[in-house]
Design a protein around this nucleic acid. Structure first.
Length: 520
RNA sequence: GGUGCUAUCGUCUAGUGGCCUAGGACAACGGCCUCUCACGCCGUAAACCCCGGUUCGAGUCCGGGUAGCACUACCA
């Protein structure tokens, strides 16, 4: 009896969604779609002290921008109508609530079940006492060897336990790990992983201080109740996977325990270690999908969207960071990824985050866009530079001419501003190399030649100017580059007649006059 | 320290015992194109962590080292 595939992405609302988290969400989504299953979004907000306002909304918006659909849970949506199928920050589905902070009663029941069955116990040790213990005994671990010396319901008399609880004393519930047992975890990416229960500690499952479970308990209970079949998450969870297996066993849910797949980590581009927000700041690239305004500390972090990335490029880039099909193909649409993705082709080793490759992906997607599409995205950039009412077809023409030399739409401004504004100053290096003593005189002659020209097409101008240069015995390179400097302000840009074509006769000649005056 | 995971060009990777003289892509470098700068195209340089073993044959399987990473909280 095969169960319907159900996976979940379960972020913690402690800040912006990290790019590594985005990849985890993506792999979950690809797996779900490929198997005709469901993708759930659950918010794991069991740490009340780390909650950041706005983080949940950010996560929802980021997934929408990226095209990662949510079938069930928080912020469910699908792309068919391009709109949310539930209200933003709302919940959708039969297994809710999908915010762990709203599931307290559910967890109470299951904590009690573990207590009743002897798989868990009360512990009253204060954080200070535990800290002292760790100071006193190197490598102290709360487990079968040490729990007898601690303040818990296994060591204390029932009367004392009851009176402590009745008095409203703070306590936690710990999982009772049986010692000396080999726990097997079958991982879809890594195969069989075996660890001995002796190295596991009696993890805290529930804390009375905020009446919330910890990750481990909430995660297992929710995955079970939500009928999750595959847990696809980061490798940092691999060491606690045996604990999770033990929890499924303690609950008697082993027969429906989800399959595990632990994804390789995203590493710093330089040096070693996990990719962090600091690396992005240090090396100058975003680690978040969207710009993030942290309402807690007021900081602003850059995002891929605001940097000019297309969501398809981010998806493609991320998909290939840790997964690769057989063969040499690198460009994949979301549909193609859904078709070809497979967990057994996910790498086992961490992938250094190569931002340069990310740019290349965006370049590829930019080239695939129509000039009109690019123009539409470029309009706001133009407006920001004081050109709010440029003609759409002129902008599209510029886009067509310039798109192959940029990676991002906003970059178009740096490359193509001269189409919209006459140069204010002239590039030092270009002048040195291309603006000679005779240039002002040649430009004056060119000006006079062009003033009488009615047909301003590229062909006509070429037919007029090239023979003229030859008849005068001037160097083609010298004249054309001087002309280029007049129009662009530097020795760069597309073919000269493409520039004059877009600028038009009047503007082109005006720029030549200005240049002669300024540089003469 | 303990436990676990991992190991092919600088980077992402292909490779599942002979198709490997190790392939592709990014980045680098050189050339072509050309009025310039790009793009594009062509090319160059660049890797199987080490030591054993299995086998006629090992990048590929096994063992041991080494290195890197992750985890080791009343965080996820």
């Amino acid at each position: 009896m095969d169960r319907k595939v159900r996976v979940r992405f379960a972020p913690s609302p402690t800040g912006a969604l990290h790019i590594g988290g985005v990849r985890t969400a993506l792999y979950n989504y690809l797996f779900a779609r490929q198997h005709g299953g469901d993708m759930l979004l659950r918010i794991e907000d069991t740490d009340s002290t780390r909650f950041v306002p706005g983080a949940e909304e950010y996560i929802i918006e980021a997934l929408r921008w990226l095209g990662i659909e949510i079938d069930e849970g928080i912020g469910a949506w699908n792309r068919k109508d391009g709109r949310l199928t539930a209200d933003l920050c709302g919940q959708y589905g039969a297994h809710g609530p999908y915010r762990q902070s709203e599931r307290r009663e559910i967890y109470h029941k299951y904590v009690q079940q573990l207590l009743d069955s002897g798989h868990a116990y009360y512990a009253f040790d204060t954080p200070e006492e535990l800290e002292a213990k760790r100071q006193e005994i190197p490598n102290f671990q709360y487990d079968a060897r040490t729990r007898g010396q601690m303040k818990n319901s296994l060591a204390l008399s029932p009367e004392e336990v009851n009176s402590r609880i009745a008095a409203g004393g703070k306590y936690v519930v710990r999982f009772k790990v049986e010692p000396d047992e080999d726990v097997h975890v079958h991982d879809l990416i890594r195969g069989e992983v075996v660890i001995n229960s002796n190295i596991l500690d009696d993890k805290v499952l529930y804390k009375s201080s905020d009446d919330l479970p910890t990750y481990h308990l909430a995660n297992i209970v929710d995955d079970h109740l939500m009928e999750v079949t595959h847990v696809i998450r980061g490798e940092e969870w691999l060491p606690s996977a045996p604990l999770h297996v033990l929890l499924y066993r303690a609950f008697g849910w082993e027969d429906t325990m989800p399959a595990f797949a632990h994804l390789p980590l995203l590493l710093k581009p330089d040096g070693n270690g996990k990719l962090s927000k600091r690396d992005g700041d240090r090396l100058g690239f975003p680690v978040f999908p969207l710009e993030f305004h942290n309402q807690k500390d007021g900081s602003v972090s850059s995002g891929y969207r605001e940097s000019g990335y297309y969501p398809e490029a981010v998806i493609n880039f991320l998909a290939l960071l840790g997964w690769h099909n057989t063969g040499d193909r690198e460009i994949y649409s979301m549909e193609e990824l859904i078709r070809d993705f497979s967990l057994d082709r996910v790498s086992k080793s961490g992938a250094k985050f190569d931002y340069e490759k990310g740019k290349w992906f965006n370049h590829q997607y930019l080239q695939m866009r129509s000039n009109e599409d690019i123009a539409r995205d470029f309009m706001p950039v133009l407006a920001a530079h004081g050109h709010a009412d440029e003609a759409p077809d002129k902008v599209a023409q510029v886009a067509g001419l310039m798109k192959d030399r940029v990676n991002f739409v906003p970059e178009l401004w740096e490359q193509a501003a001269f189409f919209f504004e006459a140069p204010e100053e002239y590039d030092e290096k270009s002048l040195k190399k291309r603006w000679k003593e005779e240039s002002p005189r040649q430009m004056q002659e060119l000006l006079e030649l062009l003033e009488g020209q009615a047909d301003w097409s590229a062909e006509a101008l070429d037919a007029l100017v090239m023979p003229w240069i030859e008849s005068k015995g001037y160097g083609v390179g010298l004249v054309m580059n001087a002309f280029r400097i007049c129009l662009v302000g530097a020795a760069r840009g597309p073919h000269i007649w493409d520039i004059t074509g877009i600028l038009g006769k009047e503007e082109s000649l005006k720029r030549v006059r200005t240049a002669i005056k300024k540089l003469g």
